Simulated assay, not measured.
Amino acid sequence: MSHAVIGAGCRAHRWLRVTVQSRATLADVAKLAGVSAKTVSRVYAQRDRVSAETVERVLSAAKRLRFRPNSLARSLRRGGPSKTIGFIMGELLNPFYYGIAAGIERELAAHGSPLIVATTDDSPDGEEHVADALLAQRVGALLMIPVGDDQSYLEGERQLGTPVIAIDRPARNLVADAIVLENRTGTHTATASLIVHGHRDIAYVCNPASVYTQLERVQGYRDALRDAGLPVDGRHEVLLDDMSIPLEDTVRELLCAREAPTAIVAGNNRACVAALRAMRGLRHPPALIGFDDFDTADVLGVSVIAHDPVEMGRAAARLALERMADPAGFTTRVELPTWLIRRGSGERPPER
């Protein structure tokens, strides 16, 4: 494995060499199915005019060849790639996601490449369906924020030359490039700062907890405690994986406990807002540092671990364009920096 530096504060690691196969054409499907190319075209355009037996043969051949009908075929060379890039994001209301989308769109606009955006609403069940819908448009590259446990369903498409770029979280069971944050460094910095200000009972809260970003962030929090010679107390870790559970109520219970923490590290912007709501009315609220900046954090005086989601989107778009120009090569993992912004909430001293 080799590594390289990409831009100030970024680390890139090269992992596996990517190989590319030629993409099956409509003629290839026709040959395997034993029908004419015109019949294959009719199966996808006017299926009711083709016998059920022929339809089954054509679709079976297409599946074996990993052939995808191209909805943009009239404007593209048959079997060739599109300049359009697809982006699969989570819920539309999350400012982190639309910041990434804005960065992608700005970078692609400068290169004359259109962008198609689809959302999974952070539901693993819908990820493959959304990906299939975008790939049916024969996008030139697929950018995605993985939410499922397995992205191996994209391996065949990647082998056919469609670059797949994972954003925020690496893809699982798939050889793909990745643009991620320095998650461990960020929470380690936040926790260490709270320790410097005198805190010894520090909680970590997040929902969901099983995604890559949170697994990395909670580890950074634990590492900082160990580095300071403090115990890692599971009672101070609120790690939820059910978005239907109100995190605000869970944090409130934590703060009402006999051994309540004097400080909190919130694993993402939603957890930070939930913690702020739970702290309302407290005479001596705990210190708080959240991961992810958000629009009113400066007004509320919330200390945060910040990063640049727009730059993350730009970096992903640049990598996608490079891959489209040269699909073969080693996969790349880019880590973008995070930094602590002190606004007051993370600098409060411990009070019982």
Rank of each mutant, 00 (worst) to 15 (best):
A192E: 02
G9K: 06
T84A: 08
T331K: 12
Q151N: 14
P285G: 11
T262I: 03
V130E: 09
E107T: 02
S22R: 10
E347L: 12
E248G: 03
L134T: 02
E347H: 09
D150V: 12
Y97P: 02
I88K: 01
I88G: 04
A27N: 02
S152L: 00
L115C: 11
D308G: 13
A306L: 10
S22N: 08
S41W: 01
L276D: 03
V299M: 09
A101C: 11
W339I: 10
K63D: 15
L143A: 04
A297D: 03
D168C: 04
R17W: 10
H197M: 09
L174V: 03
V175W: 03
E53W: 05
H129F: 08
Y98S: 15
G301W: 00
R352E: 11
G281W: 00
A27M: 01
L225M: 14
L340I: 10
P285S: 09
S193C: 12
D48Q: 13
L76A: 04
V273I: 15
D48E: 15
H199G: 00
L72E: 04
P124C: 09
R200P: 00
R47F: 08
I165S: 00
I179P: 12
D125K: 14
I85H: 02
V35G: 04
A203H: 03
T19N: 07
V304N: 05
V164H: 06
S2A: 13
T187Q: 14
G161T: 05
